[in-house]
Amino acid sequence: MEDRSNQEQSTKIEGGEAAVIQLSRVSSLEKAGGLWCSLRPFYEGCIHFMLFVCASISILVTVGIVVVLLYESVQFFYDVPILEFLTGTRWSPLLKPQHFGILPLLCGTMLVAGGSAIVAVPIGLGTAIYLSEYASPRFRDIVKPMLEILAGIPSVVFGYLAIVFVSPIIREIFPSAGVFNAASACIVVGIMILPMIISLSEDILQSVPLSLRAAAFALGANKFEVTVRVIVPAALSGIMASFLLAISRAIGETMAVTLAAGATPKLTLNPLESIQTMTAYIVQVSQGDTPTGTLEYRTIFAVGLALFITTMVMNVIAQYILSRVGERYE
């Protein structure tokens, strides 16, 4: 033992000397020695710049979307007056005589979005409340991965299900319904946006502080009263934001709607009829061999612009609400 500590003492002294030597070597703070040291700020600067470029690409993408959409749309609006585009009630750009009124497409889109919200909102909110307030941790651990799987199922699969599974059932109940109908699209899109509503709303419900629950229970409220009178109202704006995001997702939903809802632009609110949405129209034109630079080709940019603006506005509102919710409890 004595030996070892002696040994250590000697290493320590050696170390001390090394330290002294090192000191004299680097006594200046403006370290001059070594190529690496003089290159270091340059190297660091390069990396900083490269990462900055990566982050800026997101801005470029937004600019790119706007520029591409506007560039072709402006040329489209040379030929079709913007008023006619926004107020016309017939949409038939691919057939003579051509009509360029976007209202039927908009109507179809809103029909699907509204219908899917009617399907998804009650189930989604109920599930979110159950998972957040009632479910045991073990039950949550089982259900949440299942919801993740549901969220991960691609949209084209839901299109398949609408045609092969949902639509026959609807025709069984309502014999007047066509093979392609808005109702089957509403149902599958509703199922698609369910996981989104559930996970967002559940996060919001969970962020309601425990103290609020405790206070309500302390006043003698039962679980139902606490949930419905205290927690849900406290989380209401956030829940609304999650609905907005989900509806915006439904508006942008493409493959399922293209397959299920058909390709006949119609100004109708009857869910049993075949309709066409903005997204489905874009797919329809993309699939064909429309030559570049024609009026028909440009319609997809004009419709794309309308779609982009609609979803963007809803997203911005939702983000704004969510950012305010975040601040409130911090």
């Binding site: 942008g252 982009f308 979803t311």
Partner: peptide, 19 residues
Amino acid sequence: NIANLAGVPSIVYGILGLG
């Protein structure tokens, strides 16, 4: 901007890719 881009429908990216 990134939060909003995440909400842009994928078909719009398709149109961007096309253009």
